[in-house]
């Protein structure tokens, strides 16, 4: 598999490591705890869908520019449909949320 890093260009799979679903967001972790939001946390940490088709995923270009990436990958064909720097994705998402 080859992934086009937005910074480094197209590279082989061995330069990257996979983390998983990029559509999850971390529940609020600030006090008060314990017990608050337990279900949300369990879902965030443990529960994963197994989608067929395009999937937004977090990958790390550890052997390159050390950017975390949001990669849209077709899980049926391994076709890479899109890659973006994760930091840009999260900033854009927050901007949208604020707007």
């Amino acid at each position: 598999m080859r992934i086009t890093c937005p910074c480094c260009g197209e590279r082989g799979l061995d330069e990257f490591s996979y983390r998983g679903d990029a559509t999850l967001s971390r529940p609020a972790g600030d006090p008060p705890l314990p017990g608050a939001g337990a279900e949300a946390w369990a879902e965030y940490v443990y529960l994963r869908d197994n989608p067929s088709g395009p999937h937004r995923e977090l990958w790390y270009h550890g052997a390159g520019c050390r950017s975390w990436l949001v990669v849209t990958r077709n899980t049926r064909t391994h076709e890479i449909l899109d890659t973006e720097r994760a930091v840009n994705v999260v900033r854009a998402t927050r901007k949208d949320a604020e707007a």
Binding site: Y60, G62, R66, W68, R85, V90
Partner: peptide
């Protein structure tokens, strides 16, 4: 050493940019 670096980058680029 490597995994911690990766984790810190994750925290910095994704969780708390």
């Amino acid at each position: 050493a490597g995994p911690v670096m990766q984790h810190l980058e994750f925290c910095h680029q994704w969780l708390w940019p």
